[in-house]
Design a protein around this nucleic acid. Structure first.
Lengths: 243, 243
DNA sequence: AAGTGGTCTAGACCACTAC
DNA sequence: TAGTGGTCTAGACCACTTA
């Protein structure tokens, strides 16, 4: 697909780690990798940095580069799907059939909050899209999204009933790769009870996100209310991940 | 403090952004910055990459580097404190007085799960530490932590009643900079009702974390149950943040 | 002392955007 | 066409760990 040196090396190393080719939990040193791959040490470092930022390896100065034992032993713990955009479309299906029911679809003027979050001017309009997501007819999420009409002037009901981000990618060739996410919990309200089948005392998980294109253009604000059993955000945090 | 070129530039650029020195939302190009700071372009790029990974700027190939409008306009939205380790010690006080009540402190053998998560052998022991955290006598979190005795052989009640991670840093000079975090929501149980003052129907937020030193040594597994009003994890996600 | 990862440089060339 | 950020190289030197 792509043809970047550091990315190829990264992919290859990941494969070799998963295949247990480094049984002593230790990777070859950077200079050796540089030579064996026939690339500069800088490119090797870059590949290793990506893996380190994902928590797959640890680099120990003066000592070497080591595989995170959790990555091999216990992939059920080490799942940072949450480290994706926290996005609707990326909920794991696990063989279940995902479905979308469109609850609301209209165009409204952006209020002040939306103007700020989506970099809009007073008077700009947004699509308001409310959807219910299910797995095998079992609802798990109410999603209310707002998309500036100017970033998708010809959005239709049919599109909105499916993956919106795929639509961006397919039509405009632009992919949504960045987001602000805010994760909270709340008691459920009447609508939650009705749509998500929750009991009074059962909570909802809230995920609020602003999604951006690569170039910083915001394309959606989304408020997601999840059946609490489905709120599970996993992530690897690396404070030195600043490189 | 530190004296890294890219870090100094990063800090300076951040300051200049916050001081509105780039009123047109656009930073000087990399080659200019390289010259004006008297460093290589690589170092400038590195500094910019850090800021981009934090969501403070967006880089647009062929066009320039731009400030994220949300960063200046609305810092109340743009707060990714959650992007810290998700750590206990980092909860913002906001002028409130944080307190810790030690509920339990003992040494027990690590069960299988802890052995896996903390890279321990059968028969290894861990401290089991249960604490209640409050702001101005208002409880908001029950925290149950497990720390291998071998990473802190002389842990005392006094230490445990304060910041454990600061203790690591002060005594061993090692800082906790990485973590796996898992965030969920659950209905509250009896203990939550009692200790956190929750009503039956009110939920708790759960944050489970494994914390590591720089070199990959795991130092703590922590299960945190938060009053739902205090669960608020904010983060900037960048799928291209792999550099 | 030897080996490892970390930082930084100077420069070449490529890919994309704007005009 | 000019200007921007992206990738990659080859090499120097530093900081730390291990023996």
């Amino acid at each position: 697909m792509v043809d970047l040196v550091y990315r190829n090396i990264m992919t290859d190393l990941k494969r070799r780690i998963e295949n247990n080719e480094f049984d002593n939990k230790r990777l070859p040193d950077e200079r050796s990798l540089s030579e064996s791959y026939g690339v500069s040490r800088s490119s090797v470092k870059r590949a290793l940095n990506v893996l380190a930022n994902q928590g797959i390896i640890f680099k120990k100065r003066g000592s070497g580069t080591f595989i995170n034992p959790l990555y091999q032993k216990n992939e059920s713990i080490f799942q940072y799907e949450g480290s994706n955009l926290g996005i609707t479309d990326s909920f794991k299906s696990d063989g279940q059939v995902p479905q979308i029911k469109l609850l609301d679809f209209q165009v409204i003027p952006a209020n002040e909050e939306l103007q700020t979050e989506l970099f809009l001017n007073p008077g700009d309009f947004v699509y308001q899209i409310k959807r219910l997501r299910t797995f095998d007819d079992h609802p798990f999420m109410i999603e209310q999204g707002y998309i500036p009409i100017k970033v998708a002037p010809e959005l239709t009901k049919a599109v909105v009933a499916e993956s919106i981000f795929n639509y961006f990618e397919d039509t405009a060739g632009k992919s949504v790769t960045k987001s602000f996410m805010s994760i909270k919990a709340e008691p459920s309200n009447d609508e939650d009870h009705e749509l998500l089948g929750l009991k009074d005392f059962e909570p909802v998980g809230m995920m609020e996100g602003i999604f951006f294109l690569d170039d910083g253009t915001p394309v959606e604000v989304s408020n997601m209310r999840l059946h609490y059993k489905y709120l599970n955000y996993n992530t690897f945090v690396n404070l030195d991940g600043e490189m």
